[in-house]
């Protein structure tokens, strides 16, 4: 494995991890809203969140490219006002990974929140806790296992993301090249040896992720 290959591995792992953290605030908020609140048009939010799961990844990538490109609604603002570029940078990779893996987190977290007995939250309120305190001391701890499971799913999905990433970030060596993009490119180049090395790393990473999640679930089961 060359230095360049290690860079790709390292880059992929940390952007995937960063994306799993980045989606937490919005993801948990959405999951909580879907679990605990009802409002007209709720299905709109549900559909929006499920879109990246259901659309072909390149289609999602195309939508993101339109929105975050330099001439896009959001990208234009970022470029003109903040001199910030998203497309063709590591931020584009982060964006693609986050958007594609968010639905998985939201689904798991929603189920986890729904399984928290609302009675417990009510009692906490009678004991004087405000909404935020109820969330942090009752809802979140009891939903933690499901949420962590969701994060791991999201991380795994982010590790393997391809379609949206190549659209939004391209495959710029040293800057936006992820494991899956690099494997694809090496196959295109005919450099199979290189591709298989990266494939080996992918499999190893997948094993670590799954083993890590099993460990987490086992230890959390032992908590009082």
């Amino acid at each position: 494995m060359t230095a360049a290959e290690w860079q790709i591995v390292w880059f992929t792992a940390w952007v995937a991890a960063l994306s799993s953290l980045a989606i937490l605030p919005a993801g948990l908020a959405a999951a909580w809203l879907l679990a605990r609140r009802d409002w007209p048009g709720k299905s709109v939010l549900e559909t929006l969140i499920s879109l990246p799961l259901v659309l072909p990844p390149v289609a999602t990538g195309l939508i993101l490219l339109q929105l975050f490109g330099r001439r896009g609604a959001i990208g234009g603002f970022l470029h003109d006002r903040l001199d910030l570029d998203v497309v063709f940078t590591w931020r584009g990779v982060l964006l693609a990974l986050s958007v594609m893996s968010m639905p998985l987190l939201v689904r798991s977290a929603r189920v986890a929140f729904e399984e928290v007995d609302p009675r417990l939250e009510q009692i906490a309120r009678t004991l004087g806790a405000g909404n935020l305190r109820v969330f942090y001391t009752i809802t979140l701890p009891l939903a933690a296992r499901g949420i962590i499971g969701g994060m791991i799913l999201a991380f795994a999905r982010a590790l393997g993301e391809f379609g949206a990433t190549i659209m939004v970030a391209g495959n710029i060596p040293g800057r936006t090249s992820t494991l899956s993009l690099a494997i694809y490119q090496n196959v295109q180049l005919g450099d199979d040896a290189h591709a298989f090395r990266l494939l080996g790393v992918s499999v190893a990473l997948a094993f670590i992720a799954v083993w890590g999640s099993e460990l987490l679930l086992r230890t959390s089961r032992q908590k009082p």
Binding site: D117, R119, L120, Q122, I123, R125, L127, G128
Partner: peptide, 20 residues
């Protein structure tokens, strides 16, 4: 008035002790 400001202690039938 929001529940938390009512100052009312409630012990429901299922007790609702916090398991965690």
């Amino acid at each position: 008035l929001a529940t938390r400001h009512r100052g009312i202690g409630y012990v429901p039938q299922d007790l609702a002790l916090f398991p965690q």
